[in-house]
């Protein structure tokens, strides 16, 4: 409701040339392409239908048909071509291309460079973004992408992030994402029969299993995660713990120290991680966990 007339105008100006190239598109598809509700698209179309050139006879109006929820434009008037891109649209696309390029070593990287030059040909433009290439395991990334594209299984040897163990797993890669300086892979894990997340730098080796059969029968959660609430006191000098683990933090209470509540989480990982902060993170709840941290610290100390 609070949409400005200007935003709406911008969308309307883009709708007509889009329709011209997507004749007979359905209202739901159109709504999805423009990221608005179907009602909004309907309202926009009704409005556009009334616009045209001075004279405003049917000959001078933008002409379109709807039939059973499908839209066709027969006379777009002067809106035959899309509008040129504004700076922020161009910026978003150029950065996307840079990010994509930073993950590739193959010919695609060269194609992207050529494409960027093409896009900027008609726009004098200072790009405020700089993407610094520093991805190391591009070869593995490319193999995983092929596995995603072809839905093939990968057999990986993986070093666990919660326990000091490795395991061989057959996985079906689904999605790669970058967060907190690391690259992760979401996958269906055939070995544990559930969705799992893997950190790429913990994958010790991988091989493609050709002609593999994916069996997505889910088993109820194998790892029972303890759901007793965990509360930590984090001193401000340890706040990168919070930055790096946003996903597991339920609630933060500011103060001299930060009091944080954690979502259910693997305790083994938590204990090992807390130890490395040397007292800057304290467990205030539950008590057993606090005692566990202390007894581990003592054990390591005694080993010296």
């Amino acid at each position: 409701m609070s949409e400005s007339a200007l935003d709406r105008t911008a969308r309307a100006l883009d709708l007509v040339p889009y329709l011209l190239e997507h004749q007979g598109i359905s209202i739901p598809e159109l709504a999805e392409a423009f990221g608005v509700s179907e009602k909004q698209i309907n309202d926009d179309l009704v409005l556009i239908h009334m616009c045209g050139l001075p004279g405003y006879t049917p000959l001078e109006l933008i002409d379109m048909f709807y039939e059973d929820g499908y839209v066709t434009v027969s006379d777009p008037q002067s809106f035959k071509k899309p509008r040129s891109m504004n700076k922020i649209e161009m910026t978003s696309l150029l950065v996307s291309l840079d990010l994509l390029k930073s993950l590739r070593t193959d010919d695609v990287a060269k194609e992207i460079e050529a494409l960027k030059i093409k896009l900027q040909e008609n726009m004098r433009f200072e790009n405020p973004f700089v993407v610094v290439q520093n991805m190391e395991n591009t070869e593995m990334v490319e193999a995983i992408e092929r596995a995603i594209a072809k839905s093939t299984l990968l057999r990986i040897n993986y070093a666990s992030g919660t326990k000091d163990k490795t395991s061989v797993r057959d996985i079906l890669p689904i999605e790669i994402y970058v967060a907190n300086g690391s690259t992760y892979l979401n996958a269906w894990c055939q070995s544990s029969k559930g969705d799992r997340t893997f950190r790429l730098d913990r994958i010790l080796s991988y091989e493609i299993i050709e002609g593999s059969v994916v069996n997505e029968t889910r088993e109820s959660s194998v790892q029972a995660v303890d759901s007793l609430p965990i509360e930590l006191l984090v001193s401000k000098s340890a706040r990168n713990f919070i930055e790096d683990n946003r996903a597991i933090i339920g609630h933060i209470q500011e103060g001299e120290q930060l009091r944080i509540e954690l979502n259910p989480i693997d305790r083994e990982w938590l204990v090992r991680t807390i130890l490395g902060f040397g007292g800057q993170i304290e467990v205030s709840k539950p008590k057993e966990l606090a005692l566990e941290v202390v007894s581990r610290a003592r054990a390591i100390k005694e080993s010296y």
């Binding site: 889009y18 071509k81 899309p82 891109m85 594209a149 970058v178 907190n180 946003r246």
Partner: peptide
């Protein structure tokens, strides 16, 4: 969307389907 309104059919002959996401 503007690029898609230029009337060029997109071909999908890539060996990869990037599904990256950033926080």
């Amino acid at each position: 969307r503007k690029l898609q309104s230029l009337g060029i059919p997109a071909t999908l002959d890539f060996e990869f389907r990037m599904k990256y996401r950033f926080e």
